[in-house]
């Protein structure tokens, strides 16, 4: 089993602590069947992997540090989060994990941003998103450069809420990300998105099929919490067949 990156340096006041959803992403992306698929997909090409909403950095750190196993070669990687604390934490998580695994991968930078809005079109080979997927009455507003908070508590609560609160069906942010996929993914690009049962996964998959510049394929490649528990999770893979 591949080691989980160390996140002991991360303060979880404003950052999502690695949980069942994070670990499902690690397990699903490094499963023998998925690794085989990725090896084949990127046999001639060293992929650029981007994680949106990195939080602690456990996922992108894992993918970078274990790239030789998962992709068959080292990768370059980037992390995006709306929370600058998460950006810095992720950079450190990735640095430590890559060193620990003696990987040749390179974590280029963390950037603070709204999803893929600042990412160059057609440049992403592997996109990973563990969204704020919990259904909530309201979707918290994004922070912005001019943001002022009354106190630290208000700031921490706001940033933490952005890591889980997903608005209607828990899907408001995820749908915005899905709409960016045709623009940011490269021709051989692939996206992994985590969904919970309340996100209405079958409806989401149909919507993915209808994205422009397709045909888009979508498949569930990992599941957890099948028996009890209200939070049933799955990972979907979104891709196109290369020409």
């Amino acid at each position: 089993m591949l080691p989980t990156p160390d996140t002991s340096h991360v303060s979880f006041n404003t950052i999502y602590e690695p949980a069942e959803d994070s670990f499902l992403l690690l397990d699903s992306l490094s499963s023998p069947s998925e690794a085989e698929w990725l090896h084949q997909r990127f046999s001639n090409h060293s992929p650029l992997a981007i994680e949106v909403g990195t939080g602690s950095g456990v996922v992108i750190g894992f993918l970078s540090a274990n790239a030789e196993y998962i992709f068959g070669k080292p990768i370059t990687s980037l992390g995006i989060d709306v929370n600058t604390n998460a950006c810095k934490a992720t950079r450190e998580t990735a640095r430590k994990a890559i060193k620990e695994q003696n990987s040749s991968s390179d974590y280029l930078a963390s950037a603070c941003g709204d999803l893929c809005s600042a990412i160059k079109p057609q440049s992403v080979d592997v996109l990973v998103f563990n969204p704020p997927y919990v259904p909530t009455e309201e979707l918290p507003a994004l922070p912005n450069i001019e943001q002022n908070y009354r106190d630290e508590f208000e700031k921490d609560s706001h940033l933490l809420s952005l890591s889980y609160a997903g608005g209607l069906d828990g899907m408001e942010t995820t749908y915005r990300l899905l709409q960016q996929i045709p623009d940011v993914l490269s021709g051989i690009g692939v996206a992994y998105v985590l969904l919970c049962a309340q996100n209405k996964p079958e409806q989401v998959k149909t919507a993915v099929g209808g994205l422009p510049n397709g045909p888009w394929l979508v498949e569930t490649i990992g599941r957890s919490g099948k028996k009890a528990g209200w939070e049933k999770l799955q990972i979907i893979r979104i891709w196109r067949e290369p020409n």
Partner: peptide, 18 residues
């Protein structure tokens, strides 16, 4: 102008540009 601080670029836009 997007600021870069402590090595982290900030690409969040002010509300009037979103």
């Amino acid at each position: 102008e997007y600021p870069v601080k402590e090595g982290v670029g900030n690409f969040l836009l002010p509300p009037h540009l979103v």
